[in-house]
Amino acid sequence: MTKEELIPKLKNIIAPYVQDEEAFKNLNEDTDFVKDLKINSANLVDIILDIEDEFDIRLENEDMEQMLDVKSAMEIINSKLES
């Protein structure tokens, strides 16, 4: 899935949990979920569950630990979709 297809889907998933609206408006590959969007760890788990549902994939613990920014989320989603 291309970046252009993936980022809007991720934005829809992340939107309910964002604490920094300004950073969310400028969301890109380098956006960090915790540092930039001020998403807490409990909500990060919710996002991961939402990603699993949206893309019909299963994320392992090590995937979740690495999913700290938009770029890593896209890489993990794409690798799961390919396998």
Rank of each mutant, 00 (worst) to 15 (best):
E22S: 15
I57F: 10
L49T: 12
E60L: 05
E54Q: 15
I7Q: 09
M64A: 08
N78S: 13
M64G: 06
P8H: 07
D36A: 01
K9C: 15
M74T: 10
K71C: 06
S72L: 11
L59G: 03
D53G: 06
I7L: 13
E62I: 01
Q19M: 10
D53W: 07
N40R: 03
N78L: 07
S72P: 05
F33Q: 07
I48T: 02
D20Q: 13
N40Y: 02
F55K: 04
S79A: 03
S83K: 10
I39A: 12
L68E: 01
K25A: 13
I7T: 09
I13H: 05
D36I: 03
E5Y: 13
E5L: 11
D20C: 14
E65S: 00
D56M: 03
L44D: 04
R58P: 05
M1F: 12
L68Y: 06
N12P: 03
D20Y: 07
T2D: 12
L10I: 10
D20R: 14
L68K: 08
F24D: 02
I13F: 03
P8F: 01
I47Y: 05
L81A: 05
P16S: 11
F24L: 06
T2Q: 11
K80H: 15
L27D: 14
A73L: 11
K35Y: 12
K35P: 08
I76D: 02
E54P: 08
I51G: 02
K3F: 03
N12F: 07
Q66C: 03
M64F: 01
I7G: 07
P16Y: 15
T31Y: 01
P8L: 08
L27M: 15
E62P: 04
L49E: 13
M74A: 11
I77R: 08
S41F: 06
V70T: 14
R58T: 02
E65Y: 01
F55A: 02
S79T: 10
L68M: 12
A23C: 04
A73H: 04
D53I: 06
I76A: 05
S83M: 10
V18Y: 04
L59I: 11
A42R: 02
V45E: 08
K71Y: 09
K25P: 05
M64I: 09
L10A: 11
S79F: 07
E82H: 02
D20L: 10
I7M: 14
M67Q: 13
V18T: 13
N12L: 14
A15I: 07
E29M: 14
I77V: 15
R58K: 00
P16L: 11
F33Y: 08
L37E: 00
A73R: 01
I51L: 14
M74D: 05
I14C: 10
M64Q: 02
A42T: 12
L6K: 13
L68N: 00
L37D: 06
D50V: 12
